[in-house]
């Protein structure tokens, strides 16, 4: 029996069809939920869309939803993971911790779990988190140092031993869909 104290925080903010909502799920390294918070959906009125203008989406996603969620989550995950690259900056400044964007890549697997390669884009890497999947595409906030990249990759590799790293995003979607039905 081995015990791991690490945890991952997953953040999803959705703004499809003018309806904005977000959710945060913190899980242990087995994917078991530690806490889950979600926001009420926000549908800005026509007047609000006019008054806020182009700043509306940024305000809703980054300030209102993200900030509310992070204030609510009591856990302090080893990594915060988002699936929208534009949330990296605000997530970094709000959490002051390690944050990254995670997505599946279509590249063939690298030699061994733990391998990290630059994708060619600044602060975007390919990380082979385990030996049973394609490398993950991992983006970091601007000016992230190499050491921080290595540390974050090590956390991903550690967690991938006991869980599927992208799976919690699917559960967030299911939880929000269930909440919407109720």
């Amino acid at each position: 029996m081995a015990v791991s104290s690490g945890s991952l925080g997953y953040i999803a903010v959705d703004g499809a069809e003018g309806l904005f909502r977000g959710a945060a799920l913190a899980v242990d390294f087995r994917g078991i939920p530690i806490c889950f918070y979600y926001t009420d959906p926000i549908k800005p009125s026509r007047l609000e869309r006019i008054l806020y203008g182009s700043a509306l989406e940024v305000y809703l996603r980054e300030e209102l939803i993200l900030e509310s969620l992070l204030k609510s989550v009591e856990a302090k995950p080893s990594l915060w993971i988002c699936r929208e690259p534009d949330l990296l900056g605000p997530l970094k400044s709000l959490t002051k911790g390690k944050v990254l964007y995670l997505a599946q890549s279509h590249r063939s697997p690298m030699d061994a779990a733990g391998n990290v390669e630059s994708s060619g884009e600044p602060w975007v890497y390919l990380v082979q988190a385990d030996s049973v999947s394609a490398p993950l595409r991992v983006a970091f906030p601007e000016n992230t140092k190499d050491d921080e990249v290595k540390q974050a990759a090590a956390v991903l590799v550690d967690a991938a031993k006991t869980m599927e790293l992208l799976e919690p995003f699917g559960r967030i979607q299911k939880a929000l869909a269930l909440e919407e039905k109720e």
């Binding site: 959710a23 799920l25 078991i32 939920p33 530690i34 806490c35 889950f36 918070y37 979600y38 926001t39 009420d40 926000i42 800005p44 609000e48 806020y52 305000y59 809703l60 209102l64 939803i65 509310s68 969620l69 204030k71 609510s72 559960r171 299911k174 939880a175 269930l178 909440e179």
Partner: peptide, 15 residues
């Protein structure tokens, strides 16, 4: 504009 945050840990743990 305002939003309210809800704790859905119970619901998430049965998924």
């Amino acid at each position: 504009l305002k939003t309210k945050t809800h704790n859905g840990t119970k619901q998430a743990s049965v998924l």
